[in-house]
Amino acid sequence: MKQQKVINIKQVALRTLQEEAAAIEGLKTFINDDFEKVVQLIGHCTGRVVVTGIGKSAIIAQKIVATFNSTGTPSLFMHAADAIHGDLGMIQEQDVVLCISKSGDSPEIKILAPLVRNFGNPLVAMVGNASSYLAQAADYVLNTSVPKEACPNNLAPTTSTTAQLAMGDALAVCLIELHGFTAEDFAKFHPGGTLGKKLYLRVGDLSKQHPAPAVLPESNLRTVIVEISSKMLGITAVVDAQGQLAGAITDGDLRRMLEKEVSPVQITAADIMSRQPKCIQEQELAVNALEKMRQYDITQLLVLDGETYKGIIHLHDLIREGII
């Protein structure tokens, strides 16, 4: 087993980050007319963006595809090696092909580039060598040249793949703004994750998942206690005959009432209810309910449709959905 060297780990890590940061900073000089034309080309494309590459560049290509798809630019990944063994059939007439390569001269890329040109599809090269075969064959060039790799041997793709990733993000963000892609649009493509839920899940979606405790203003104390206990939310709404909200009673209100020297027999809901309970409209985002609970240091809100009582949203609902 080869003996490990003694190194200054923090120093090496900092040097790596500094070199990669400098490489990204250097990309500013490559944001040129070709970059702008590529954004317009992809932005007005009626097909997909087929992103291809080989080796580490293929991995970067997959990440760019994922970013494009999640932000409204239809894309797919095609491995350059598989492309020349049948996967070229993935490319359709209206597609734009984005080929990523550090050298631009790998054997697979040299075979693939002219084939794409023969299909008549626009070919965009994201390449680290502006004099390479790929750069010369492409319609547009996104230059991602870097001075050196962060690898001490200047071999392992490190700085170069960071530059590719950053250039891909620059494309994606420009396309987001070009398309006017909003947070609501983003939520449509992220329905399963916490981020998506924060952008699309509504208060009414959660309040409908359990019964809506309610009593009338003239309900006696026993009715109030049974309603709060049976619904297990620690609260009940007080509503009139038309379902309009009149107030709310919490288990805390009950305890405070029992501390007073009053006869529980004559007590009605109207006597102990809070007449200005904290409420939220059912069409609001669930994440807004969380902010309101935090603001008032409470664990539930009454849910309304206008002035009509619809139910309760509880802190546990938000925890269960992963909003917190």
Rank of each mutant, 00 (worst) to 15 (best):
R48E: 14
G104P: 14
G322C: 01
E19L: 15
S230G: 03
A130P: 13
G204K: 09
A246G: 00
L233A: 01
D82R: 05
C174D: 12
N32T: 14
E321R: 13
A113H: 00
L14V: 13
E227S: 14
K10S: 08
T29V: 11
V51E: 02
L318R: 11
K188R: 12
G234L: 07
F35V: 08
R256C: 05
E149L: 06
H316A: 09
L155G: 06
P74Q: 02
L98E: 10
G196K: 03
G180E: 01
I280P: 01
N288K: 13
A113Q: 02
T29D: 10
T71I: 13
I91N: 10
F35E: 13
Q283R: 09
L245M: 01
V303Y: 00
L201K: 12
H44V: 12
E20Y: 12
N129G: 09
P122I: 08
I313W: 05
K188G: 07
A289H: 04
V262W: 08
F119K: 15
S131I: 08
D139M: 07
V39G: 02
I109K: 05
Q281T: 11
Q40E: 10
D95R: 11
Q283N: 08
V65E: 00
I31F: 01
N154M: 14
I228T: 00
A170D: 11
A130T: 15
M232I: 10
E25S: 09
V146I: 02
L41I: 15
A248M: 10
I298N: 04
G311V: 02
K197N: 02
I323G: 00
P147C: 12
A156T: 15
V224Y: 07
Q281N: 11
G168V: 12
Q3K: 09
E20C: 13
I24V: 15
I267G: 02
I9A: 13
K292R: 13
G234S: 14
P157R: 03
M90A: 03
A183N: 11
D95G: 07
G252R: 14
K260P: 09
T158R: 10
P114D: 14
S106L: 10
E36S: 14
D169M: 08
M293S: 02
T159V: 04
R320W: 03
P191C: 14
V226F: 12
A269K: 01
F189G: 04
K198H: 15
V97L: 11
I176C: 11
K37D: 09
D87P: 05
A166E: 15
Q94K: 15
S57Q: 08
V6A: 08
G311R: 00
A156H: 06
C99D: 06
A289Y: 03
A61K: 07
E261F: 05
I31N: 01
S145N: 06
L17K: 00
D251C: 11
V215P: 12
P114N: 03
D271H: 11
K63L: 00
V215Q: 07
